[in-house]
Amino acid sequence: MIQVVLPRNLQILAGVGRVVEVQVQGPATQRSVLDALEADHPALLGTVRDAVTKKRRPMIRFFACEEDLSNEPLDAPLPAPVAEGKEPLLIIGAIAGG
């Protein structure tokens, strides 16, 4: 199972805790993880990425293994520790305020 860490607002919206686990079909990529996340928690549809274009919302970042994966291709493999469930994929809301 792949671990995904959600920002607080999305935890409340989906009615889940900080970490959710998802099972993906095939390789673990941003696309497959988000597909699984939205299938398990439909309330999150459109909140992390556009529901039609699948483009990441501008103020959302994806981090894992101390790397910023936000601009990686949607179908690029996620780092092995994420795919193996040893490290989480972090979904982060860009910092607010100044």
Partner: peptide, 27 residues
């Protein structure tokens, strides 16, 4: 709605005691 997370539509059937996310696809 939120600048970070976009649009969500909520619906309550019990005068706001409980809520459920409804459809948010505005195409």
């Amino acid at each position: 709605s939120s600048g970070w997370f976009g649009q969500v539509l909520q619906r309550s059937n019990d005068a706001g005691k409980t809520w459920a996310a409804a459809g948010n696809q505005f195409q």
